[in-house]
Design a protein around this nucleic acid. Sequence first.
DNA 1: AGAACTACCGTACAGTGTAAAGGTAGCGGC
DNA 2: GCCGCTACCTTTACACTGTACGGTAGTTCT
Lengths: 224, 224
Amino acid sequence: MTTEPDPTPRRTPLTKAAVLGAAVDMADRSGAGVPSMRNLADRLGVKAMALYHHFRNKEALTDGMTDLVFAEIELPADGADWHPAMRDRARSLREALRRHPWASALMDSRAQPGPATLRHHDAVIGCLRGGGFTVAGAAHAFALIDAYVYGFALQERSLPFETVDDLEGVAEGIMQSMADAHLPHLAEMFTELALKPGYDYGEEFEVGLDLILDGLARRRTDWR
Amino acid sequence: MTTEPDPTPRRTPLTKAAVLGAAVDMADRSGAGVPSMRNLADRLGVKAMALYHHFRNKEALTDGMTDLVFAEIELPADGADWHPAMRDRARSLREALRRHPWASALMDSRAQPGPATLRHHDAVIGCLRGGGFTVAGAAHAFALIDAYVYGFALQERSLPFETVDDLEGVAEGIMQSMADAHLPHLAEMFTELALKPGYDYGEEFEVGLDLILDGLARRRTDWR
DNA sequence: AGAACTACCGTACAGTGTAAAGGTAGCGGC
DNA sequence: GCCGCTACCTTTACACTGTACGGTAGTTCT
């Protein structure tokens, strides 16, 4: 009777995937970035040091988290037309970075790209090559689009307001600075654009993306 | 004799500027990002809590540091032609971010822009407006260029190697992954481009910048 | 039965930001 | 002279971080 099935040997053992899922979820909710090992362990009903059995250190954990984000991004379908495919991918990447705001800052420290990341990059490059880009041209296009999307996500995240209500409070302070320091152009942009009811900084994304994709189309066959 | 000049009342008192200068210098040298309050204080011959007399909290300190970086960036000269001026500014910004790699990641958390930052933005917008961009057009151009430069800096910083020697070591691991996981396009790009002797990822910067400035020139008068 | 291995826990340490309070030097006013 | 006042810095303390080290149940292999 001591060898009964024992449905919960103590609890169902942790898996890498379960830990990463919980970590991503906590990071998304809290808005405070990657959770601490202790908090993450608590949420999993376990003590902090148990996590080190599944991840060499915290960096390995965050690497796994970013790879999970990459897995969410829409891959270009095989043989798809490069132009709409790149547009879709850029939007998808941007939305993933918006869902997981901690991820854009994390790019920095990611020590090594995970499998989803590599697969993602391969598909994108493949799509570009199929669309007539040379190897060097595909590298140009890839670097350009990615830099833009990451940079945009970073900027969007660093805006000092989230809602329109916030905006008005913050705006007063900035407007004051602008009046004090004689910054007429900035002031103009605020009063005539940014503070107007319908303005949404997020819409700048499409404008820039259009310009970039258009430029790529124009250079596609010239490069190299 | 008790009222002598006393050249060192105990020591010359700290100033905000001195603290910020030391902090930036430490961050640049160490490569480990913003120093801790204790380490920074040590370097200044002072105890950690003394710093809180000059900065409300650490965030205020990092805000000051980023503002100091902005102060290094070349401003467009008054009335300068927008095209070369924007190119120079983008290069200057990128080089500042390369000198201070911790700064690009810090963009994120900067709570409020300092005076140098605001002055910088004002000058850039002014140059664009003077070059015939509408308010909305200048906003488009500004958002696009900045996103690109920040994103590029972020990517460049996240490359898993620094020197060509490092590269070869890392490459073997990645090549192995690529072979295992069937990533032919990525493999091709590595063998035919990235691992070739003369290749320098940094040169991609100019390619993308050209494309963007060209697109801006093309749309300058159409926008809005 | 004993050994080896897996998965987890307890404890401990050095490091972090910072709140609270205290000290001390230099000052102007009585 | 002395009394506060302010500017600057220190001491102490607390809650929190990542993680090294060693231990301990339970399972599996021999």
